[in-house]
Write a protein that binds this DNA or RNA. Structure first.
Lengths: 197, 197
DNA sequence: CGCATCTTGGACTAACCAGTTCAAGATATG
DNA sequence: CATATCTTGAACTGGTTAGTCCAAGATGCG
């Protein structure tokens, strides 16, 4: 079989992404990727690049896919900030609840492995977290939070969102994850009522 | 040289712990451990066990060392709950600020690698998080928080504490980590003033 | 001093790793 | 049908992995 691509690059990238997401960079061998994508080693190299490049593409793919969803969730922040932030967290909760996807978060996974990953990949993960913070800050500013409060809550909410990755990997129940979020939500609610500065 | 141990087991365990903590299980080879501890492979095997057993010992060591400090920090919770929880977070902040120790947290590192670690090790990490939650719940109950609130804040604070591991690995500044904590503290302060249930 | 005991370093094994190469074969076009 | 083009699977390479083994040598005890 040849002459025409025998596979769908997008679905192969999704499969590779899930594999990296579940097992991490170090614990994913090319054989694992070959098995996950259904592709042969030489096809992976010719179509998707080497392991490092492939991981990078998967990370970008992940960041864009969920970045768009977080963005969408926050889009109504100026009218209903609490509902928007709740929707933001729901993006994560739904991802965790999806049985077809691993627990955790590829960005968190990558951030944790920073000391042993190539600088290029580590930088991409850090950038992704920066974008997340920026998204939140913009939304919270639009929600009429004072600049200082918007900055602070953007940092806090981004961090709490990452904590869900760790907790879900540690087997936390949906109820527990909800509890983590609820307390952050009540703090935000309080600040919307009476700004701190 | 022989007949008597040529090295200090405790300091070797500390060195191995730091190596695992920084690089994770998969990215730590026996050569890395040999270099870090100054011990030869056969000495590692005879004195510290195989890689799995050694990781397990390091994880227990870590959990006990910092578990004791968290416990100590929370010991004054019944008199001054806010100060006690602040002290709890300070244990983490000081660890992150220590230039001789890696960023992040060995428990978080282990939790994130759950799918590719031996079940025994994964269980230990999850247990460590459970102990942390229990410590917090006990302290918050002693602080006269309603049972429901104590349970909820225990879960939330344990999660936020883990988020510091991810954020510090992603290069967050001390100021940012402080901001993450401050919002949780203000939520706790609010609840101490007016219980939610 | 002599002997038994234990540690140590290095050599060794078998398996696995990422990455390359290439002949065989399937396709598209004319 | 013929030919040029591209994909594919499998074999191969050089390096690294965890774990084992053993001879050499240092120590403690009588």
């Amino acid at each position: 079989m040849a002459g025409k691509k025998q596979f769908d690059v997008d679905s192969a990238l999704d499969a590779a992404m899930v594999q990296f997401w579940r097992a991490g960079y170090a614990d994913t061998s090319l054989d694992d990727l070959s098995r996950a994508t259904g592709l042969n080693r030489s096809s992976i190299y010719s179509s998707l690049g080497d392991k490092d490049a492939l991981y990078s593409r998967c990370l970008d793919r992940y960041a864009k896919r969920y970045g768009d969803r977080y963005e969408q969730a926050l889009s109504g922040a100026s009218e209903e900030p609490l509902r928007a932030v709740r929707a933001f967290f729901d993006v994560t909760l739904e991802r965790i609840a999806d049985p077809d996807l691993p627990d955790g978060c590829l960005v968190a996974q990558t951030a944790m492995a920073t000391p042993v990953l190539s600088p290029h990949i580590a930088t991409r993960a850090i950038e992704a977290l920066g974008f997340q913070r920026a998204r939140l800050r913009t939304a919270l500013s639009a929600a009429k939070l004072a600049d200082g409060d918007a900055d602070d809550f953007a940092v806090h909410i981004a961090a709490v969102n990452q904590s869900l990755a760790v907790m879900s990997r540690a087997g936390a129940s949906r109820k527990q994850l909800h509890t983590v979020i609820d307390i952050t939500m009540s703090a935000l609610s309080q600040t919307l009522r009476s700004p701190r500065g």
